[in-house]
């Protein structure tokens, strides 16, 4: 016990606060909400928070991998619209199984295109994925002809496709199982495999990674495949839950997802961060939203609180790395 405590504190309290600020903020917020509203800590409420965070969470897993490798992916929101519209539209036309396969193939192709331009051609990831954000939004509209899509209401209750968004295993909602299951798999890959180590190396210092014999281009390319795969999974959950889709359903998600990743403490500079941190970041976002609503604040108040929490979290992180709180820039 004492050794765990020591490991966590690293000896001094200040270090503890700085290094684990996000955990402490998380726990403090939970306590505050718990005191403020007696419904907050009920099992049903907790489950509903996690369920509603699951989709952003799944996307955040992939984006975390991209961010650790030192890049950004702003195209995930548009890609979510694209994937959801496609899988919902194809569901009635070719059946749920083929629909999922075709949609996944298309989304992975988009991810591969991102990865090719950023990994192999070595273009700036922010601009490439910004361009793709716009282009994929356009592609979605072209595909749907500007109309929203729905799964035939008569089959909505009978298709097995409903299981991803509406099913459960032993009372635990399916989106939650998918989120945590995928988080476990991606987390293990990133933390414990040679591939994961290479992602950190490329993000930490891509030149040194190349000088160490790591095939940087392939690693970067692969991170965008991971990211687009996660978006595909999120699209299945969303499509299955709503049984329909608007053309712009994912609009703005790219930044919300990024906010969750940052909130968890993964640095945008690359080379640090983890899946566990992102899961916590996602949950914090979810609990802020839920807690404020239960306390009777308007829906959008959560965004203001998120703003403050992001700045505080990152500031603590930066300050911890620098060893002091005030920057030397003058």
């Amino acid at each position: 016990m004492s050794s765990i405590a020591q490991k966590l504190t690293g000896g001094d309290l200040k270090g503890l606060v700085a290094r684990n600020g996000i955990f402490i903020a998380f726990i403090a917020a939970m306590i505050a909400f718990g005191i403020g509203s007696d419904k907050f800590l009920s099992f049903d409420n907790l489950e509903s928070v996690v369920r509603s965070s699951a989709m952003i969470g799944v996307m955040a897993l992939g984006v975390t991998v991209v961010v650790i490798s030192g890049n950004l992916d702003l195209s995930v929101g548009s890609m979510l619209s694209f994937g959801t519209v496609m899988v919902v539209d194809l569901h009635d036309k070719i059946g749920p199984g083929p629909a999922i396969l075709v949609m996944m193939a298309c989304v992975l192709a988009l991810g591969a295109f991102n990865g090719f331009l950023i990994g192999f051609v070595r273009l700036n990831s922010l601009i490439v994925t910004l361009g793709m954000l716009s282009a994929i939004q356009g592609l979605t509209l072209i595909y749907s002809g500007g109309k929203n899509v729905d799964i035939d209401p008569s089959t909505q209750d009978t298709t097995w496709f409903r299981v991803f968004g509406r099913g459960d295993i032993a009372g635990v909602d399916m989106p939650i199982i998918i989120f945590f299951g995928l988080a476990l798999i991606v987390g293990m890959i990133v933390a414990f495999t040679p591939y994961g180590r290479r992602i950190y190396a490329v993000g930490g210092n891509s030149t040194a990674a190349v000088f160490s014999g790591i095939r940087r281009r392939r690693v970067v390319f692969s991170t965008y495949l991971v990211s687009s795969f996660c978006v595909g999974v999120a699209a299945i959950i969303l499509g299955s839950r709503v049984m329909g889709s608007q053309n712009n359903v994912g609009q703005g998600y790219e930044l919300l997802v990024l906010a969750a990743v940052i909130l968890g403490g993964t640095s945008l500079l690359g080379g640090s961060g983890s899946i566990l941190k992102t899961v916590i970041g996602v949950l914090i976002l979810g609990f802020i939203q839920n807690g404020l609503l239960l306390l009777g604040y308007p829906y959008f108040a959560q965004w203001i609180v998120t703003w403050i929490v992001i700045i505080l979290a990152v500031w603590l992180d930066v300050a911890a790395k620098r060893g002091r709180l005030l920057s030397s820039i003058s």
Partner: peptide, 25 residues
Amino acid sequence: LVLGMNCRDNITLPQVGDMTAGPFV
């Protein structure tokens, strides 16, 4: 060097692919 990585990971970086037990390092 990858300055943000620890000493061990830096030293084993070029051969990390060969140092596995199952799928893990």
